[in-house]
Amino acid sequence: MNARTIRAGLRRGGVEYRQFLRSPKDVGVGLIGTVGIFLALAISQRGSDWPGTDTPKASIMAAGFVAFSVFSVAIMGLPMTIAADREEGALLRVRSLPGGTRAYTIGRVASALGQILTYVALMLAAALLFTETRLPETAGDWFTLVWVLVLGTLAVLPLGIALGSLMPGPRTAANLLSVPMMVLMIISGVMIPISVMPEPVQWVAQAFPLYWQGLGLRSALLPDTMLAAEIGQDWRTLETAAVLGAWAIAGMVLAPWLLRRVTRKESGSRLEARQRARAAQASY
């Protein structure tokens, strides 16, 4: 990969991130909506602790929603934009350019990173302003906050690219991904501690990165009294790093291969055929 490809990719990422900021749907529904739901839930629970933990429910949700923000941008937003790019022919266009597919991937990753940063910053700001949540006080907790956010992002971004490569179109992506994502949100401790879930459900949640990222964030943002409501009464830092790292590696191996495979399949006549099929469907 040469410097020109990287520059082209970063430029693409910048343009797409600005498009996100200017899109009423992405900002109004996605960003403000997610933060709004968090605030509504957190404020309704203000002043009340989770039993036996001395920890405000609102702060538990703050950590959970930060993790969920990263997760939803990567696992829902990113696949939908890739599927839309494919439907509109952007994947075919980049295929016709030297270094185009690589620049495209860099661009998609860069703009998703920008969105994740925006979500996380806004979510944290809302939590600090409107709930009892406080930023970490020790250097160690700050360090945890940063590495969990970074590794958690690495665990889901490649996965999002892989999912986007598999989706036939943006609507299908939304239909296929939204329900599993909501289920994971409920069972992974985003709003209520996972320890209240039945054990089989806990196992399912622990197979996915969302739970582990939330756990890591809680270890950085919440007091150790919270451990009373965690599995094994332990922050399980090593396990967190191992599971998130495993997802990151799996995604990084899988995603470039899948994306290359779908871009290679794109051609003008296939694009045309899909657009015709969609037009026919729309006219029913």
């Binding site: 020109r4 490809t5 343009v15 185009g100 003008g268």
Partner: peptide
């Protein structure tokens, strides 16, 4: 290449897209 019916990059600005594509060469 100019294909039959490109509809890609609808949200990009014209100049922005051309500069981006030029950046690959």
């Amino acid at each position: 290449m100019v294909l039959q019916s490109w509809r890609d990059h609808p949200k990009w600005r014209v100049g922005e897209l051309l500069e981006h594509v030029a950046g690959h060469y």
